[in-house]
């Protein structure tokens, strides 16, 4: 059963259409990235799921139930983009407070808070006020409050913002651990390299409209393009290859080839072998998610 389902979800602020007919499903153990420029509608989507704002039209189901059932939020861990923590509180007390808001009993609350303070490397500083914490430490507290109730769904808006590379990796590994144990994650981030590592699927939205959706692997493998590394480059290779496709780029012994429909990588191997040249490697050509994202957003413009 999908943990989150949205059907034709739209949100309008006056004349501005912040989100237009967004449809997606988030399955158990899956991590889905919401990508888009500032104001694309990512945070709006997250707030709609949490009922912080109401949709203009469309429906949202969380664990098969209407998202307005407040008890469902027991199963959701949310980390906003700029988490406003109670700065007047000590880190430990702040986490205990969030534990109370989740309805955890005293024993569970204390156990979870201690576990998380250790995991987030904050145990030694647990009795310091949050306003004495660095930005990165505050972000770790904010992340800890999102997972304190061991939720089934994580909604994370820029989860690694303000963190150093070591803590970014740690947060990624926690998210991975949770998704491996069946938790679903909806993540928004501007660090697209991280999304490539963290997420299984992505939805690219721009000005509220979905412009591309799919598995990360599929998104970053452009059409039918292949990277072929040959033992030596010969001019005749290009003439042969142009019968089955198009050479897009030549970089020393490395060729980037786009195949015409009906041809397969096997045809490349045959043509290259005919020219008495060996193939060192052949692989699907992949580009960085960042390039795909820029390209799609540019096209849309």
């Amino acid at each position: 059963m999908p943990l989150i389902e949205t059907y034709n979800l739209s949100k309008r602020y006056g004349d501005i259409l912040a989100l237009n007919n967004l449809c997606f499903k988030l399955e158990e153990g899956e991590s889905l990235a919401l990508l888009g420029r500032n104001g694309a509608g990512k945070t709006t989507t997250m707030k709609l799921i949490l009922e912080l704002i109401r949709p203009t039209s469309g429906t949202i189901k969380v664990i098969g139930r209407d998202h307005r059932d407040h008890n469902l939020r027991r199963e959701i861990g949310y980390l906003p983009e700029e988490p406003a923590l109670p700065m007047y509180a000590k880190a430990k007390n702040a986490l205990l407070y969030y534990g109370m808001l989740l309805g955890l009993d005293r024993k569970t609350r204390n156990r979870r808070v201690d576990e998380l303070l250790h995991r987030m490397g904050l145990y030694e500083d647990r009795n310091r006020m949050l306003n004495e914490y660095s930005r990165g430490m505050q972000q770790r507290v904010a992340f800890a409050q999102a997972i304190i109730g061991e939720p089934k769904i994580l909604i994370l808006d820029e989860p690694t913002a303000g963190l150093d590379p070591i803590w970014r990796r740690e947060i990624r590994s926690i998210i991975k651990e949770m998704t491996n144990s069946g938790c679903a994650a909806l993540i928004s981030s501007h660090i697209l390299a991280e999304i490539e590592l963290e997420c299984d699927r992505a939805i690219i939205i721009d000005k509220g409209n979905t412009i591309k959706e799919g598995k990360i692997d599929e998104l970053i493998s452009v059409g039918r393009q292949y990277s072929v590394v040959v033992s030596e480059f010969k001019r005749g290779l290009i003439t042969g290859i142009e019968k089955i496709g198009k050479v897009i780029e030549i970089d020393g012994n490395k060729l980037r080839i786009e195949l015409k429909p009906g041809y397969s990588p096997q045809d490349i191997i045959e043509i290259v072998n005919k020219k008495k040249v060996d193939i060192v490697s052949i692989s699907i050509f992949k580009v960085a998610l960042e390039d795909i994202f820029s390209e799609l957003v540019k096209e849309k413009k």
Binding site: R73, I76, A142
Partner: peptide, 13 residues
């Protein structure tokens, strides 16, 4: 101060 977002994301009406 937008702390409300965190509070209302918990199971509270």
């Amino acid at each position: 101060n937008r702390h409300i977002e965190l509070v209302l994301s918990k199971p509270i009406t």
